[in-house]
Design a protein around this nucleic acid. Sequence first.
DNA 1: GTGAAAGCGCTAACAC
DNA 2: GTGTTAGCGCTTTCAC
Lengths: 337, 337
Amino acid sequence: MNHYATIKDIARILKISTSTVSRALRDTYDVSKETKEKVLAVATELNYKPNYNATALARGSTYNIGIILPMINNYYFSTVLTGIQQAAYSKGFNIVLFITNNSAERELSIIQNLFITSLDGLLVCISSDSDSCGHFQEIIDSGCPIVFFDRVPSNIKTSTVIQDDFNGAFEAVEHLIRNGYTRIAHIAGSQGMVFTERRVQGYLAALEKNNFPIRKEWIVYSGFSQEDGEADTYRLLDGEERPDAIFAANDRKAIGAMLALKARNIQIGREIGIVGFTNDPMSSIITPTLTTVAEPAFEMGRESCELLIKHIKKKNFIPEEKVFPAKLIVRESSIKK
Amino acid sequence: MNHYATIKDIARILKISTSTVSRALRDTYDVSKETKEKVLAVATELNYKPNYNATALARGSTYNIGIILPMINNYYFSTVLTGIQQAAYSKGFNIVLFITNNSAERELSIIQNLFITSLDGLLVCISSDSDSCGHFQEIIDSGCPIVFFDRVPSNIKTSTVIQDDFNGAFEAVEHLIRNGYTRIAHIAGSQGMVFTERRVQGYLAALEKNNFPIRKEWIVYSGFSQEDGEADTYRLLDGEERPDAIFAANDRKAIGAMLALKARNIQIGREIGIVGFTNDPMSSIITPTLTTVAEPAFEMGRESCELLIKHIKKKNFIPEEKVFPAKLIVRESSIKK
DNA sequence: GTGAAAGCGCTAACAC
DNA sequence: GTGTTAGCGCTTTCAC
């Protein structure tokens, strides 16, 4: 590899010490204007690029933050990541990306092999079946701050960023009730996850408030994919009593549900109402358009990253829990007309 | 920050030298089994984590590769990135992510501030209006290999990974012709980009082969978004002679076109046929379903990354151009029925 | 305001 | 098979 110029080269050319060059380059005050200008001139002439490994080693801090995500090829995560990236970029941080494929095993392996020593902080959305929270605690204890978002562990004391799952679900179900649906089912996410449970709680609370009976067989847990939504729906349709509305834990599952209904020639809206969660662009493309609960994915990403940077810059920053409002967006799939 | 244990600590405890510890940890041959076992035992006991900054500094190579992308919040790029990540992970490389927001300015700023000294290689999809190829050349010359994919510059000698844009477009248009459409328009991508031009060439070639006249006003260039597709379509509809089919440069534009047709109450398929490019999952969700040309996004990501790693591992690796086949997927939007 | 010197944690000749 | 030594490029006391 052709070597880049180093501060030594600059120092040698200018016949000054490397420490002066270092100071000049970093805008430290106690260096005269002349020397600074000279240094800068030579630096650009030599196309000097700082070696961040050396800086990191000497200073003990890199400007890298790690992101651990279950996946990125869907609307929600790719938008969150875009938000994170935006915030990181504007504060001069780089992003190191890790994807767990929703596998707890891979998550664990990533964490254990994480080159923590070259990361200033970590942004994490845990995988569905993750139980590796002890490992996260260990990382935090060792001085590398973590901020969790969306899928957060329940027992770790650090900042978190989530959407208002309970109220979003509550409003979705109340909306269905107001529109005349009476037998409302819920196809939920992975069992045991905090946000899955919060959405279930919102669903239950809305039913209770309106004096609707709760039927366990109308709550079906599975994964978060379109296929899961499809399968869940067939299960509901083939059950003893057929629901007349389905609240899905996310839009992908809702779309799966719509596909199942279409396959069975059941009118969406008129016969069975559907509400999703996320506001994936697909929800306004599909026919009929899908009523959903919007999450501010981009802002959540940005906020998570800003929070993390605060933790990085200020040791002992007091953890905050940011809850973003979820907003019902009424479209065609939940109207009986 | 609580300091992690270093090889010095291990050496001190075992009363051996740091080099022995270093060798033991890295499985180098010339170290006895006993010492190795002892070292490993102490290492796990101390929860030793290597400092990658130090390693990188000493060895001159990090295990990081940078990815520069116009955006990640759509199907194609998020899938490519997933493929890249998969390959990188399996070969022990980390991914540092940069997003240009499709801005040449930002792309330039990223490249100039790139901490190249801590990157072993770079994977790049240039932004629409990029003209910073000189800078890329400079990076390659300095010893940091680059592989370009999807949107590649025309004048740099290095490996590239693309899909077969020409033939994909050609087949799409021939398919329309075979299905009885005679006035076929093309809503193209950003002018000047290699792959935009290749798709235009494929479109033109199919027309010529079938002795269809070429009408300049039926080729409209703009961006790659759904909104662009919508606007382009209105322009075509309001033109002097209305086309009876539209081949779109990608699915997002095709979907925009479909929305425009729906808004004008024009029957998709029967009155105006539509074909897209990408095979975004949306194409099978929308009604009518969208005929499209599928690109193997995941595989392209994986292949790009593997090619880059070859460049990294083998100085003077001879550049390769990988062209992935594009495959027509016929659905409802291009059938007159 | 500038220089000398030590050190960040690890690797890699070169000895023995 | 193991230790000694120097050094990767940069930062940072501590002098002057």
